[in-house]
């Protein structure tokens, strides 16, 4: 049993790149949302995914996370083919994501939101609830301690007992990101985590991203603010009209003209 506590340990690398998405195609009805995009992340780094609305950024994230079915292409996580796996199986392997409209369980308290993630699928079985009470208890204890430390790190401890429905927009974003950490991700996908967040919180989310990455987690972040991208991303991927059109460090991408091309196209 690997408890999420390992999230605080040294960066670890299995064989192969953290993520290798090859020639991914996503189609909604007749519209091709992603037309053969590839994205490889060799080592833990923060990757900014930018591009105009409708460029296919969210669809690419969904294809990696398993929320949509790909028409063709493959998604490998640490060398393992996950293309045909449903989202919950991918999550168990370490692909954890946030959603464009923050996903918080409204009827659970903030603390429970983290617990649900921390206890994971092994602690959420009927058998654990009925037969393996002692082990379930130990697991809950461990997850509670981690939840407390994560909430304190995110300065959310004081609202630990608030229901999800009682949170502000910015708090929801933070809780959602904090919840992701409880799952010990290998790859974290953040879909516009700064939208609707107060400026001082934006900065804080950015700092968290960098710190999470230092622990050995690769992050893909969809974001519109160039300021945010420049301050936290090691690498920028530009998408336009359903394709990846540029990929490189922030400065390189900014000077190559591809960004202008993307937004004017």
């Amino acid at each position: 049993m690997t408890l999420p506590a390992t999230a605080h340990d040294v960066p670890r690398r299995a064989g192969g790149a953290v993520l290798e998405a090859r020639d991914v195609r996503v189609r909604y009805g007749g519209v091709e949302a992603v037309a053969g995009a590839s994205l490889t992340i060799e080592a833990p780094q923060v990757v900014g995914l930018i591009g105009p609305n409708g460029a296919g950024k969210s669809s690419l994230l969904a294809a990696i996370g398993g929320q949509v079915r790909t028409v063709s292409g493959t998604v490998l996580l640490a060398g393992e083919d996950v293309t045909r796996l449903p989202p919950h199986r991918r999550a168990r392997l370490g692909i954890i994501r946030t959603f464009q409209s923050a996903s918080v369980f409204d009827g659970l308290t903030v603390f429970e939101n983290l617990l649900v993630a921390g206890i994971g699928e092994h602690g959420a079985t009927l058998r654990a609830a009925l037969l393996e009470r002692r082990r379930a208890h130990a697991r809950t204890e461990a997850a509670s301690q981690l939840a407390r430390s994560v909430l304190e790190e995110f300065e959310l401890w004081h609202i630990a007992d608030h229901y999800g429905r009682e949170l502000s927009g910015g708090q929801r974003r933070l809780v959602e990101i904090a919840r992701c950490l409880m799952r010990d991700p290998k790859l974290l996908l953040l879909d516009e985590p700064m939208v609707g967040v107060a400026p001082h919180l934006v900065e804080r989310i950015g700092e968290h991203c960098k710190r999470i990455c230092e622990r050995g987690v690769a992050i893909v972040i969809v974001e519109h603010s160039m300021e945010v991208i420049s301050s936290i991303c090691d690498r920028v991927v530009v998408m336009a009209s359903a394709q990846v059109i540029d990929d490189g460090s922030f400065d390189v991408v900014m000077t190559s003209g591809s960004v202008r091309e993307a937004y004017l196209a």
Binding site: H88, V104, A129
Partner: peptide, 26 residues
């Protein structure tokens, strides 16, 4: 005893936000 379990919490999570619960491995 079910009501205090991780199973019940997972059920409530899935009730509130199915895609969110799925994305956490449930």
């Amino acid at each position: 005893s079910l009501g205090r379990s991780g199973w019940q919490r997972a059920l409530r999570a899935a009730r509130d936000d199915e895609p969110g619960a799925r994305a956490l491995g449930l």
